[in-house]
Design a protein around this nucleic acid. Sequence first.
DNA 1: ATCATTTTTTGAATCAGATTCATTATCGCT
DNA 2: AGCGATAATGAATCTGATTCAAAAAATGAT
Lengths: 255, 255
Amino acid sequence: MSTTDRRQKAFAEREQILLDGAHYLISREGLLNLQMHRVAQHCDYSVGTLYQHFSSKEDMLLALLTERIGDRLGLFARVADWDAGSREQLVGLVVADVIFARQQPLFFHLQQYLSTQVISAAISEARREQAMAAHKPLADLFQGVIVEALARGDLPASGMTPIQIGSGLWALGEGIHTLAHAEGLMDAYQLGRPYALLFHHFHALLNGLGWQPLCDITDGRAVRALLTRVVTELFSDIPPSVTDTLFTDFDQDSP
Amino acid sequence: MSTTDRRQKAFAEREQILLDGAHYLISREGLLNLQMHRVAQHCDYSVGTLYQHFSSKEDMLLALLTERIGDRLGLFARVADWDAGSREQLVGLVVADVIFARQQPLFFHLQQYLSTQVISAAISEARREQAMAAHKPLADLFQGVIVEALARGDLPASGMTPIQIGSGLWALGEGIHTLAHAEGLMDAYQLGRPYALLFHHFHALLNGLGWQPLCDITDGRAVRALLTRVVTELFSDIPPSVTDTLFTDFDQDSP
DNA sequence: ATCATTTTTTGAATCAGATTCATTATCGCT
DNA sequence: AGCGATAATGAATCTGATTCAAAAAATGAT
């Protein structure tokens, strides 16, 4: 067994090296220009070895994506451990999401690329399951906030499951990311900073779901005050250049 | 120049033939298996001729996508001509969107595929502008409903532009499409029919924005009644198998 | 109608880059 | 050291998009 163990460990280590190499190359030359033989070359392994780890290029990219989910979860976990109301926590999750989107734009490009039917066809079942499993804690965490809101009575009971309730909120965030990343769209329609819009609509949706305490969305200052609180209490270590995106645009000078 | 005119016309006609051929092949063998030489072959032209029309495969696919926007607009236009309140009209637009998504799943796959940064790099500027321009009437129509709602006082004025108000609604729809199309996601989290969820959250968001008249989202019957009205008044010609998706799931047996 | 000129079409050849697999090297063991 | 077993290698293969030199067709002046 010892032999097998050692081998497995070495194998896992090498996989890490390969993924790091791929990440490095993408960050230097872009996703579009990533070539398998260059990854192998960069890591001083042969192409064949690369294919010992990944069944295809797409498979490798999904592994890269899956790796990052941990970082995302780290940001989310801060929110879960935070002593605050369920509504604040949700806003905290959205802030975490936006911070992550800014810190790791590659993650979103990969996600977008790999979830395309055309591309996802080339991914092995095992790798897909691994990705699903890695997402699980994240979904659980999100669901946990909703379950607790129901338990506390912040949110009126309905016939819907917590996940169904959450799906709208999730979809809204996902949709804003899509708009934000769509080439030329933001400029064409002068949408300003998409993430400022996100918070506005997020609160509107929460209000519409009857999530207590309600928030006056016409009061831009109140919305911003909550964001500031989230940032100072949870994300004070994140560079301001990243958290800046959160702060407004369209209602900068409202009362 | 009669000669030039005639040539241009013939050229445009051939482009149509090529696009139809591509569409036919995709519908038979899937987007994944589309090959340029097969398109040429199928239409009895040479590969070189194909490239006279499209600068790359992706360019051709965007042309195919752009072509369909007209169909989408057709569904949307019915709603714009409909004599109803602004809130009903918005729901009508969402219904149109969902019908289109079911009728032309290829549209969404293409949209998803082509908006990927990796892929969109291979598209000519001219084609991109053409696609943008084709989208314009659709955006205008959507914006028109919001402008009128503001004018009628159905929606409280805020510092936001109509498009900014609409962006949340649009993002929600876009996000639900994304979830609906993500491989395995709906099953993994038992979300049921995504489009039933969409209407629930859509009304919640409208309520949260203060869009009059408010709708009691706990009353599943009322939500469904409005959908039925939209379908019978605007989309009675659409096969029930398509409009079925609209009708719920999670609150089927609520009071 | 003929022919020189321009424009269009053609498809075999090229090219890029992912993937394979026969060969070579390494390992663990006796 | 020698013997399988296991892993690594990278040149060769394969797929499929794209190009471009040559052939064909259209134009229009004589």
